[in-house]
Nucleic acid binder design. Structure first.
Length: 263
DNA sequence: ATGGTCGAAGATCGA
């Protein structure tokens, strides 16, 4: 089984890239962020033609998350306790073959973590509070669903290996110690950064700014993560970042990250 | 050096 996460930065604009990548990569489950699409405008028919069911929690212009899968996702959560938030950033679902043992299903939480704009900004305070509330939600999810995947655009570089120039970037937004502590509090629940189970080195990024020819110069960050619970660690086979769609014409600024599981 | 480039808007804001 292959699972993946991709911030598409407008599903409307990126739909051709999405369908191309689905055909190329053949993921079983894909979490999307920044769909920027009202639910009524979600392209269900186009995705069904590509062989995927989809669930979504969208809004106009900003944010928006979706989960695509070969089997219908069920038991959705779009709003979490203690976080009355109109911004559509959270979508949890259970995915498994209908005929299979329910214990074999995967629980997927798709997150579009708050960007935060700048350290000290009011959006930064919202980010830290949001992370703390989401951590509490994930603790409950993990208790109920050992086969838990938490993936999405985390808008946080886990450590300096995930930054093209950690000295220049310093402790700015996406790398500040409080954000990293917020992410660590989540991984300390027992969730592993799956990419790091396979690749310890630096220079592997999932996002490159549109400006300054950042992609060509590999001036990027690794902020798109697939976290897995302990129960899935032993079946993780390979993790990768697929840079190919970032090379296509009019790309998202993010590229898909993937994880293959022996299940 | 606070620039630059996208997307959704239809002026700027968010990233």
């Amino acid at each position: 089984m292959k699972i993946a996460s991709w911030n598409v930065n407008s599903l409307k604009v990126r739909l051709p890239h999405l369908t191309q990548w689905l055909a190329d990569a053949q993921p079983d489950i894909l979490a999307l962020q920044e769909t920027k699409l009202e639910d009524a405008k979600f392209p269900l028919d186009e995705l069904a033609a590509a062989g995927y069911r989809a669930v979504y929690s969208g809004q106009k212009t900003y944010n928006g998350v979706a989960i695509l899968a070969r089997h219908q996702p069920i038991d959705l959560v779009t709003d979490i306790p203690g976080l009355a938030d109109p911004q559509r950033r959270v979508l949890a679902a259970t995915i498994g073959a209908p005929e299979a043992d329910p214990a074999q299903a995967l629980r997927v939480v798709n997150l579009y973590v708050v960007n935060g704009k700048a350290v000290g900004d009011e959006k930064y305070a919202y980010k830290l509070d949001w992370l703390a509330k989401v951590r509490e939600f994930l603790a409950g999810e993990l208790a109920r669903h050992p086969r838990l995947v938490v993936m999405g655009d985390f808008n946080i570089c886990p450590d300096d290996r995930d930054v093209y120039d950690p000295v220049a970037w310093g402790e700015d937004i996406l790398c500040s110690p409080p954000e990293r502590a917020g992410l660590k509090a989540i991984t300390d629940l027992g969730l592993h950064d799956s990419f790091r189970l396979f690749e310890p080195g630096n220079g592997h990024f999932s996002w490159w700014d549109y400006r300054q020819a950042a992609f060509r110069r590999n001036m990027g960050l690794r902020i798109d993560l697939i976290l897995i619970g302990e129960a899935l660690k032993s079946v993780a086979r390979a993790a990768a970042i697929d840079r190919e769609p970032r090379r296509w014409e009019r790309p998202s600024d993010h590229t898909p990250v993937t994880l293959e599981l022996d299940i």
